[in-house]
Amino acid sequence: MACVGSNGELTESARRMLAALENPATPEQVAAHTELPLFRVRGGLREMAEAGLIELSAGVYASTQQGRALLSAKR
């Protein structure tokens, strides 16, 4: 999975996207915050949602406890 590397750690792009979700945000807002292409943000957020690191509600993504724990573990 692109959001988590083979070592079990967040990839750099996933880390940036997850950090951008300190407050709930749309993919467009995450793309603007991270300066990543929107298509890549959409794919990355979808993979992180499938991994349980974030959740989607009414078009807005928010980090889950699991996601926040993974992000803070490497801070």
Partner: peptide, 13 residues
Amino acid sequence: THGKIRLDDFHGN
């Protein structure tokens, strides 16, 4: 090479 991508990830572009 940038992970899984769907065509509609490009919506708006």
